[in-house]
Structures are given as C-alpha cells and as structure tokens.
C-alpha cells in the first residue's frame, strides 16, 4: 500500500513560537536518540549493505554485472513497462481527479474507496487475478488463444504491463484529488466565461495549475512501476531476456548465489529510489513556492486567466 499516506503537497505548517512549552533537555535528547537509532538501524543499514555488497568483489565485477546482456534486457524491459503503464495511469488520474474534485455526485465516496483498492491488495493477488483472467486455464485465456494464437498475455509483456498498471493505479489520482480540491475551479470557470472551449481551458488553465501535483504523482507511480516485484513475478514466468524485469533479475542472480551481481543490479534500483526522493523533494519545494506566488493567490483578478489563455500574450 505504498503511497497511501496523506499527500504532502497540500496543507501548510504553522510555525511554533519559541515560547511554546516543551520537554526538558534530557527528554528531548533521549527522543532524538531513539528516533535516530531506529531510522539508522532500519533504513541506513540496509542502504549501506546494498552499496557494500555491490562493490564487495570490486568495480570490475560490478561493471560486468550491470552491463551483462541479461541485465541490459531487464533494464530495457523495465523502462518499456514503465513507459506504457505510467502514461495510462496519468490519463486515468487526471480524469478521476477532475470528476471527484470538482463535482458532487452519488457514489463519489465509494468511487474514492474503489480507486484505493489496489493499495489494499497483496501484490501476489494483484498478479494472480490476471492469471485467472488471461492464463491458459483462465476465464478468457482459451477464447483469446483461439482468436489470436500469437498473443501472449501471461508470461509476456502485456501481462507485466497489466499487473504494473494495477499496482500503480491509485498514485496519480490520489495526489491530484487533494491538489485540485484545494485549488478550486474559479480560474477554469473564468476561462469558460471568457469563451474558452473545454480543451483550451484544460490545456491553458488546469494543466499549468496542477503541474506540480501531477509530476509528484507521476514520480511515485514511476518508482513503483519500475520496482514492482510480487505482482510482476506472478505474471512474468521469469523468462530470461524476454520477461525479466530488473527486480526479477535481482532475484534470479540471488537465487543463483551470485550475490555480488545481485546487489550490483539492486544498486541500480537504489539509485532509482534516491532519484525518486530527490525529485519528490524538489517538487514539494516548487509546489510550496508556487502556492505562495501572487498569481495563484489572486484568482479574482479578471485579467489573469485571460492572459494565460493566450500564452503569447502572457505577461512575463
């Protein structure tokens, strides 16, 4: 259920005055020590272990492990899967957020819960449902094979993409809904009044408004899409060079007792995690700066939305 924690893009912090009551210094120090000890043991040690193990046999082994043809195929497949799955969920996320944030309709709360479902389901089950649907003995499998004999869904790219789309389903929608709710729709309404068509309004008003929230959702969605293990493991069949994603390749190397190579490839995913977190920080920072900008703070200025409708005339 990664990412189900509340969004960090909405809601500001009230600064505590220095006079606020606090704990005695020894309590403060003790609590800080407990928190740092906990995070050190549970987060820093695993990171350090990955780096240590990856380089344990020297740089030569590391380089060979990450440039090995099977590793390259795995990287290519992982990139391909993310390149398909993320845009699909991006479009869904924008549509869902638009409907849920700006309209009130019956079943809205139920819809919100249903969007969250994939976070609540075990990754193994997320992959398994597609085997039950499209597998050789699945609900649709035999029919599909009859009509499209060449099509492989399970143990092929379509199955991996489906499982990935399922596990990353809520990310973009969940980030965008609070952002859109907080921003309101006054600017969109003004654009409509001034004669913009629906799509003009979307491209020139909505999209620029939500861009940071959108990027945030995409970053989280992409990290999970590239790193998913359980669901993809069920549907992939672990065919080397064909259906092996990077996390699955790591598992295979580990099970072959090729520890240095396994951790070398795993370190690529560690880099992905760091890049994800850095990008996330940057977006959080940008979103706060944008929130504070006068342009967004003055939606009642009648010239502002019109100016942004026609980008060439937009003021600097």
């Amino acid at each position: 259920m990664a990412g189900a924690a509340p969004s960090r893009l909405v809601g500001g912090a009230a600064a505590r005055p220095p006079s606020a009551p606090t704990e005695p210094p020894w309590v403060r120090r003790l609590l800080i020590a407990v928190a740092l000890g906990f995070l050190g043991l549970f987060v820093v040690v695993p990171i350090a272990v990955v780096i240590d193990q990856a380089l344990s046999q020297g740089l030569g082994v590391y380089r060979r492990a990450v440039t090995d043809p099977a590793a390259r195929d795995a990287i290519a497949l992982t990139l391909k899967v993310a390149a398909i799955a993320v845009p699909l969920n991006l479009v869904f996320g924008v549509a869902a957020a638009w409907a849920i944030a700006h309209f009130r309709f019956r079943g809205r709360a139920l819809l919100l819960t249903l969007i969250d479902l994939p976070f609540a389901v075990s990754p193994v089950i997320s992959g398994m449902v597609f085997v039950l649907l499209f597998g050789a003995h699945g609900l649709l499998g035999p029919t599909l094979r009859e009509h499209w004999p060449g099509l492989t869904i399970i143990f092929g790219l379509p199955g991996i993409v489906l499982a990935t789309v399922f596990v990353t389903f809520p990310f973009v929608a969940r980030e965008l809904i609070p952002v859109m709710e907080a921003q309101g729709a006054e600017e969109e309404e003004a654009a409509r009044v001034l004669g913009a068509s629906g799509w003009q309004m979307f491209w020139w008003v909505t999209l620029p408004k939500i861009r940071w929230g959108l990027l945030y959702g995409v970053i989280l969605c992409n990290a999970r899409a590239m790193g998913e293990f359980g669901a993809v493991s069920v549907v992939s069949g672990h065919i080397r060079g064909r259906t092996n994603t990077v996390p699955l390749h790591v598992e295979i190397l580990y099970n072959e007792y090729n520890y240095a190579a396994a951790f070398a490839v795993a370190s690529l995913l560690l880099v992905l995690a760091f890049v994800t977190l850095a990008a996330k920080r940057l977006v959080e920072h940008r979103a706060r700066v944008v929130d504070a900008a006068p342009l967004d703070a003055a939606p009642l200025d009648p010239d502002a939305p019109a100016a942004r409708l026609v980008p060439t005339e937009a003021s600097p």
Partner: peptide
C-alpha cells in the same frame, strides 16, 4: 521508494 526485492535482500 526502495523496491521491495532490494529491501528484502539488503
């Protein structure tokens, strides 16, 4: 952010 397979191995 860290893929589960990597955290498991680590």
């Amino acid at each position: 952010a860290l893929p589960t397979a990597v955290s498991g191995l680590a």
